[in-house]
Design a protein around this nucleic acid. Structure first.
Length: 111
DNA sequence: TACCTGACGGGCC
DNA sequence: GGGCCCGCCAGGT
């Protein structure tokens, strides 16, 4: 695997796209799924670059460890993240996922 | 061209 | 129990 880094990002997008509708995952869960233990942050960087990626990466289903929509500010408009989640049946209150632990979808556990 | 900041999380003091 | 620090990549200024 010469393009390890490239595959890393590709793996991140693949995992995020594997998240079922109405479910959410965390940066740490994705990072653990791809073996990037050093960086939940790397997942965040990948999300930052998801702009223009096809097929579209459902970054709105990725939240931080607290279940908060930390990256909503990167959407346009920011409310779009919550809108998409609510559209899928996910209840969001105060930028936080209601019943987050129940909706949490862990790749390592489910995959 | 170089520095800095930014979607996180876990470990250590 | 709480707060601080470190690790990682890439793009913008």
């Amino acid at each position: 695997m010469p393009d390890k880094k490239d595959n890393l990002y590709n793996a991140i997008y693949d995992v995020v796209r594997s998240v079922p509708e109405g479910r959410v995952t965390t940066y740490g869960a994705v990072a653990a799924a791809i073996g990037a233990k050093s960086g939940a942050r790397v997942v965040g960087y990948a999300m930052n670059l998801c702009h223009g990626i096809v097929p579209a990466v459902p970054a709105h289903r990725v939240v931080n460890r607290n279940g908060m929509l930390t990256g909503k500010h990167h959407f346009s408009p920011p409310e779009l993240m919550q809108q998409l989640l609510e559209r899928e049946g996910v209840v969001v209150h105060d930028d936080k996922i209601v019943g987050f632990e129940q909706l949490l979808w862990e790749p390592l556990k489910e995959l």
